[in-house]
C-alpha cells in the first residue's frame, strides 16, 4: 500500500515535470498596480515585457514595435567590428534564420552596441557578407543611449570598455521574446547545443496561443 502511494506520487512528479517542458518560463519582475473596482481594491499584476522602441535597420527603414507586432522574435547584441564572439554568434544566428526564413511569425533583431560607427551602410555591407533577407533579420542602429537602455530591459549586459577586444563588452546571449514581448529564454549564441535548444523552444513558442 505504501509503495503504491509512492508510485502515484512519483508518477505525478514525472507527469508534472513533463508538462513543464512544454511551456517556457517568463523572465523579469511582474509589475503590480492597485486597481479599485466597485469600491474593492485589488492588485492587478502585469508580466514583464520589452518596452516600445524605434531604431533603423540596414535598409534605413524604421523598425519599431509595430514591425514586430504579433510575431515572436530572437534578439541579440553585436557590433560589426567585433573581433571576438560575434562571428560565431552570427554563424549560429544564420542557422536560426535559415530554419525560420519562410515563417512569417518569426523575426530576428540584432542591435548594434556601437551605433556611432555602425551606420546603415555599414550594417548593409555586413548583411551582404552573411547573405540574408533584411525584412526577416534586422540589423539595428540608432541612438546609443537608447540601445544601451534597451539592453538593460532585455536584462543583458552591454557596455563600452577600452580594454575589451573591439572596445565593447556585451552578452553573447540570444534572447527569445514572445508575441506579447515577454522574455521567454536566454541561450548562449556561441554554443551549438544552446542554439539547438533555442530552436526547439521557438517551436514550442510558435504553438502557444
Amino acid at each position: 500500500m505504501r509503495f503504491s502511494i509512492l508510485y502515484v506520487a512519483l508518477s505525478c512528479i514525472a507527469i508534472s515535470s513533463c508538462n513543464q517542458n512544454d511551456s517556457l518560463p517568463l523572465y523579469g519582475p511582474k509589475t503590480a498596480t492597485l486597481v479599485e473596482k466597485n469600491g474593492v481594491k485589488t492588485i492587478d499584476s502585469a508580466d514583464y515585457s520589452i518596452p516600445n522602441f524605434q531604431f533603423v535597420d540596414q535598409d534605413g527603414k524604421p523598425v519599431d514595435s509595430n514591425t514586430i507586432h504579433g510575431k515572436i522574435f530572437v534578439a541579440d547584441f553585436f557590433f560589426t567590428s567585433c573581433p571576438s564572439i560575434c562571428p560565431k554568434m552570427m554563424k549560429k544566428m544564420d542557422e536560426v534564420y535559415e530554419k525560420y526564413k519562410t515563417n512569417n511569425d518569426v523575426v530576428i533583431l540584432s542591435y548594434s552596441i556601437d551605433p556611432n560607427r555602425d551606420s546603415v551602410a555599414r550594417l548593409k555591407a555586413y548583411e551582404k557578407k552573411i547573405g540574408f533577407e533584411s525584412s526577416k533579420w534586422h540589423l539595428l542602429t540608432g541612438n546609443k543611449d537608447s540601445i544601451y537602455n534597451l539592453a538593460d530591459k532585455y536584462l543583458v549586459s552591454a557596455a563600452e570598455d577600452p580594454d575589451a577586444p573591439g572596445g565593447h563588452i556585451h552578452s553573447g546571449n540570444f534572447i527569445l521574446i514572445d508575441k506579447h514581448r515577454r522574455i521567454r529564454g536566454y541561450y548562449d549564441g556561441t554554443k551549438d547545443d544552446k542554439v539547438q535548444k533555442l530552436m526547439d523552444d521557438m517551436d514550442i513558442l510558435l504553438k502557444e496561443k
Binding site: 564572439i85 562571428p87 560565431k88 552570427m90 554563424k91 544564420d94 555586413y126 551582404k128 557578407k129 552573411i130 547573405g131 556561441t190
Partner: peptide
C-alpha cells in the same frame, strides 16, 4: 575554431 571552424571552413564572407 570559434570563428574559422573546426574544419577550417570559415564563416561565409565574414571569416
Amino acid at each position: 575554431a570559434q570563428c574559422h571552424g573546426e574544419d577550417g571552413e570559415g564563416i561565409k564572407s565574414l571569416v
